[in-house]
Write a protein that binds this DNA or RNA. Structure first.
Lengths: 164, 164
DNA sequence: AAATATTTTCAATAATTATTGAAAGTTCTG
DNA sequence: CAGAACTTTCAATAATTATTGAAAATATTT
């Protein structure tokens, strides 16, 4: 299979993955396109490759930059902007985990924490549920924070140890 | 704050959480309702509590059963079905992780694996990306499998150790 | 087996989310 | 600073996803 064809399939698969996890399909497609590209691409090239409008391309490129997954790249002599994605898969995973935690986990955890403090404990089972959830998320958050702070090797080594 | 009010907020928060992670909001709301209920509920009670139609209630209850998060409960003397959700948060997390992996991760990983085998390696950077992804997902899958198989205490203890 | 209770299905509709494209805004160049 | 190149915004529209409600199917009782 030709590399170009494989890239297309990869872009489609990555787009579906994002889509099924609540992320705009175009956003993840652009991300996949840039990850699999050997050079930085302009908005035009992205529009062309994915057959999308300028507005759509622009919005989703901005979102990717906002997520810290894509960076602008200035090319000497060129007037327009070029974009490139990081290719270190551990760094990418770290970044996505971090952003999702910030955007789509923390707000809910804050609600649970507040309810735990404020609810009148009429139903002991419900009180227990809130307590257990807090304990669980505290542990999970610690793991994720370690993952965030750590360099790849540290976390990797620990993981291997955990699995042995 | 009254327990009933806290439960309502919890249901809303859990619904939003599901929604932002690509899960039907009604499905997660029903799950939250059942988790926070001290007794098994009938379809009517769920419809009433969440102000949803019978069809919607039925479909999402089935989905929750399919995900292994909710079970039917027969109540002596009652003709209709009652439903209850497991309340062990570690078990719930394990179940959700397992289902999501099966439904929304594995299909993509299969594509990546196939591409890695079949692509012609014209672009070394792209070949590396596929390889790195496979390595990453293999590690992640191992961790998740351990999490699946393990009892709570085993994983918990290891996690504490990992963090210390 | 007819009447009744309950569950399931699914076409129609509603609600949400994504996309377009053109106008407005910005930055650069001669 | 005028014009050209490029980027951003956003109202209109399209596409997708969720929900309803009533009919069909199934199960239970008399």
């Amino acid at each position: 299979m030709k590399s170009a064809e494989a890239k297309k399939e990869f872009i489609e698969a990555w787009g579906s993955l994002g889509s099924s996890w609540g992320i705009n399909r175009t956003m993840s497609s652009i991300h996949a396109l840039l990850m699999s590209s050997s050079k930085a691409l302009s908005t035009e090239e992205i529009m062309e490759a994915l057959k999308i409008s300028r507005g759509n391309a622009n919005m989703n490129i901005r979102a990717l930059i906002d997520w810290g997954l894509v960076k602008k790249r200035f090319i000497p002599g060129e007037r327009k902007e070029f974009f490139e994605a990081g290719k270190d898969i551990w760094e990418i995973a770290r970044q996505i985990a971090s952003e999702r935690k910030k955007r789509e986990l923390s707000p809910v955890l804050e609600v649970i924490e507040r309810l735990k403090k404020e609810e009148d404990q009429t139903d002991p089972e419900f009180t227990k549920l809130l307590g257990d959830m807090q304990e669980f998320t505290t542990t999970l958050t610690s793991v994720m924070d370690r993952f965030q702070q750590s360099d790849r090797n540290w976390f990797f080594k620990r993981l291997i140890k955990l699995l042995s």
